[in-house]
């Protein structure tokens, strides 16, 4: 066998990820001693990468990339200020003080509204009980909920809807985080979804009517905090899945007139929104991971739309089905944070 033949074997194994330590040492010795082999190795490495790119290339992959960049764009400076302010410790208050403070703050409520946009932060910690005085808006264990509707973003409150999903009991060695049932993500699309091809994110939505709390919202000091548990059945080590939670503050007309169902309008038409993601799901079905996000509600908020999703992370694995991804123990509280001066 000539050195070139041996190089072909070793470099082929390298590109296939099959090269062991002994092979690596042998390959290195070959490459060290021969400049033309190094050039050939790099030629073939570049071609290998280009073949990978060409086979994944297309409108669908390009648009997915555009969306992935758009989702990471930083918000304005005010979000940074808001995030910093949100991290300052503020004691919880009871509901009576909540209302009193609201009245006191009315004088500068409008000004606060100008500054308040959104804030999101991520953590993966055990669930904490709501402090006294907070209002629990949603405490969902999917025990008695009706089946989620595969109809996209809901325009009626207090029901789960979104992409194809189902409620199940223990499944694929995943036990519900609480009770006997949990939510299972099935697909990245829903019935009659326009442009369904290329959907690689499966979303669940819940619309909440917060108008009963209007008096407590209108100085911009109200805050909703959302926390959700995620789990996945064991999946191949090379795959990556990401979870996300988003919150949108909407006025009544936007929430119910169907406009939120149009592509790319939700962020633009919201009074404020926040998104928390980057929690990569582990491959341990026995543990649940929690992800949380929060949103300060601007004056004029009538509804809060909750969006919870899982996504295929890498371009190579993106597809619309989800083989075993679960959601449980979703909780949202309305609390109070001092309005920003």
């Amino acid at each position: 066998m000539t050195p070139n033949d041996r190089f072909a074997e070793l470099w082929g194994d390298y590109l296939e990820g099959d090269l062991d330590a002994a092979g690596r040492a042998e390959l290195l010795a070959l490459l060290n001693g021969d400049k033309s082999l190094r050039a050939q190795a790099v030629d073939l490495f570049q071609l290998h990468r280009l073949l990978g790119f060409a086979h994944q290339d297309g409108a669908e992959s390009g648009e997915a990339f555009v969306r992935s960049v758009a989702a990471q764009l930083p918000a304005g400076d005010e979000e940074f200020v808001e995030t910093v302010m949100n991290r300052l410790p503020v004691p919880a208050i009871d509901r009576r003080r909540f209302v009193v403070r609201t009245i006191a703050a009315l004088a500068f409520g409008l000004m606060v509204g100008v500054f308040v946009t959104s804030a999101a932060w991520v953590y993966a910690t055990p669930r904490q009980p709501a402090p006294p005085g907070d209002v629990v808006l949603l405490d969902e264990g999917f025990e008695s909920s009706p089946a989620p509707e595969p109809t996209g973003i809901p325009t009626h409150p207090h029901r789960w809807a979104g992409d194809f999903s189902e409620l199940v009991g223990e499944n694929q060695q995943v036990r519900p985080a609480t009770g006997r049932r949990m939510f299972r993500f099935l697909r990245g699309d829903y019935q009659d979804k326009p442009n369904a091809v290329g959907s690689y994110v499966s979303d669940a939505y819940y619309l909440l009517d917060v108008r009963p709390y209007r008096a407590e919202l209108d100085d911009g000091g109200a805050l909703v905090q959302l926390s959700a548990g995620f789990n996945a059945a064991s999946f191949p080590a090379h795959e990556k899945y990401q979870s996300s939670v988003s919150l949108y503050a909407l006025d009544a007309e936007t929430a119910t007139n169907g406009s939120t169902r149009l592509d790319n309008t939700l962020q633009n038409d919201s009074l404020a929104f926040s998104r928390a993601n980057r929690l990569l799901l582990d491959r341990q079905p026995e543990t649940w991971q929690r992800l949380a996000g929060e949103l300060r509600l601007p004056p004029g908020t009538d509804f809060v739309l909750v969006r919870i999703g899982v996504a295929h992370v890498t371009a190579a694995q993106r597809r619309s089905d989800f083989p075993g991804h679960y959601l449980d123990d979703v909780r949202m509280v309305l609390s109070r944070r001092t309005p920003m001066p």
Binding site: E63, V66, A70
Partner: peptide, 25 residues
């Protein structure tokens, strides 16, 4: 700060940048 305009920039350049990076990373 017009995000849709920026998305247009990404849309126009993503193929060239990603293929170039694929062969040089």
């Amino acid at each position: 700060g017009d995000r849709s305009a920026f998305e247009e920039i990404v849309r126009r350049y993503q193929r060239r940048i990603r293929s170039w990076l694929a062969t040089h990373c």
